[in-house]
Amino acid sequence: MYNKILLPIDLNHKQSWNKALPTALNFCQTYNASLHVITVLPDFGMPLVGGFFPKEYADQAKKTMTDNLRAFVKEHVPKDVKVQRIVADGKAYEAILRVAKKIDVDLIIMASHKRKRLEDYLLGTNALRVVQQSKRSVMIVR
């Protein structure tokens, strides 16, 4: 039923993967699907933001995030699950949608948690936008 599952995570926030990762692993093992773990680096190249960082900062940040994602996968994903690590940049929801389309995933499994703003009460802003704009199936795990 599912061949490719995309799991967006924020390495700095355990709630972004604490419940979603076991769900994704269960689906991968049940359907013999591959897991594609994505984390998103904010776009430091924007003129307003980019001016505050040295030119090499974005490259170093991406390398560090890639290393951290590699360590995360090694620690949390069983060896029998086919996994791809992806570090994307830009706005989180846009990067998730872009990667989902590019690698043609069947399912996006992501966590959501309550926010303070009323319109974000049921879903976080990134999860809400992914659900609204995705052409792929999306499972939100709480």
Rank of each mutant, 00 (worst) to 15 (best):
E56A: 08
I109L: 08
I96Y: 03
K114W: 04
E75V: 02
A71C: 15
L122K: 04
A127C: 07
A95S: 12
K116L: 10
R98K: 14
T125G: 05
A111Q: 07
N126R: 03
A92P: 11
R85I: 05
M46L: 15
I140E: 01
L41H: 15
K101M: 09
R136Q: 15
L69M: 06
L122M: 03
L123C: 02
R85A: 13
A100D: 04
Q132C: 06
Y57A: 10
D104T: 11
M46H: 06
A95K: 03
G50M: 12
R117C: 00
S134Q: 10
I103G: 03
G90F: 02
F53L: 14
V138K: 02
A61M: 12
V49H: 08
K62R: 12
M65D: 00
L97W: 11
F53P: 08
D104A: 14
D106K: 13
V77E: 14
L122E: 00
E119I: 06
K101V: 06
R136I: 11
T64D: 13
F52V: 07
I140Q: 02
K74I: 10
I109T: 03
D43G: 00
R98P: 02
T125V: 05
M65F: 01
V49K: 08
H76T: 09
V99L: 11
E119R: 05
V49A: 15
G45Y: 03
A100M: 10
D89H: 05
R117I: 00
D59K: 01
H76S: 15
R98G: 02
K91V: 05
L118F: 10
L107V: 08
S112Q: 02
I103N: 13
R129D: 07
K82R: 15
R136W: 04
R70L: 07
K135C: 10
Q133S: 12
A88Q: 05
I109S: 01
R129M: 07
T64Y: 04
A127Q: 02
V141P: 04
K114R: 03
P78V: 15
T64W: 03
V81S: 05
K91I: 08
D120V: 01
L48H: 00
Y93H: 11
G90C: 02
V138W: 07
L107R: 00
K91Y: 02
L97D: 05
E75F: 09
G51C: 08
I86S: 03
P78I: 15
E119G: 04
F72Y: 09
D104F: 09
R70M: 13
N68L: 13
E75I: 01
K116R: 10
A71K: 15
V77Y: 04
F53G: 14
K82H: 14
R70F: 13
V73D: 00
E94M: 05
K63M: 11
A100W: 06
R117L: 07
L123N: 00
D120S: 08
F44V: 13
F72P: 08
A58S: 11
P47Y: 05
M46F: 12
K74H: 11
A127W: 01
R129V: 00
F52A: 12
K55Q: 09
E75K: 12
S134M: 10
E56L: 10
Y93Q: 09
